[in-house]
Amino acid sequence: MSAVLSLREVGVTYGRGATAFQALHGISLDIEPGEMTLMLGPSGSGKTSLLQVMGCLLRASRGSVRLFGQDLHAGLTAEALAALRLQHIGFVFQHYNLFPTLKAWENVAVALDIKALPRAQQHAQALALLDRLGLADRAGHYPSELSGGQKQRVAIARAMAGAPRVLLADEPTAALDGKTGQGVAATLHELAHRDGVAVVVVSHDPRVEPFGDRVLHLEDGRLVDDRRPPRSSA
């Protein structure tokens, strides 16, 4: 298996001068396709920062990042980074970030539209994605008419639009109750195993832990642990 994402000695510093703060120190790791990687660590340990570096949203201050072999060097423009995100990466957020004025299927269709899928195919593909996530009967509803778990599954459908090879999720279950959170975690796990997507999930939700094929531990911006628990569920 060749790595989807390759980080070497990555450091991130926020601000400069006296107020500069180094949030990540010398992170080296490879993210593999077809597995769900969990990122754990106390608050402020740099989990979101690392996820943003992986997602081409934040430029590493030091070290190198490669996405499918392409070097995400400092010279890349914001437009170039956006294009890379569009092509390779799907995001799932803690607060869903759905477009409130669009129906469920329209939320997914917009993602397809940005990826320049022909207009005529957007509706059918959006419905197919929602159907896969068990939301076929909710396609015509607005986000305000959906439960938290349904919203997050619409968000996952939107993130999967255009079949990106990387799915990055920041605390996707934090706003959900026990069973619902577990369901969302299972869905992400299934995407990794059935579709071969590289899934990275930031979480300190113990209900998510059993679904991780690999668990990373961050502390004070350093990667302190990286293991593959044998109990990995299938």
Partner: peptide, 15 residues
């Protein structure tokens, strides 16, 4: 927030 979401999703500025 919606424009930021679009941007995070990779929408080019012209979108």
């Amino acid at each position: 927030p919606e424009y930021a979401t679009l941007r995070a999703m990779g929408a080019p500025n012209r979108y």
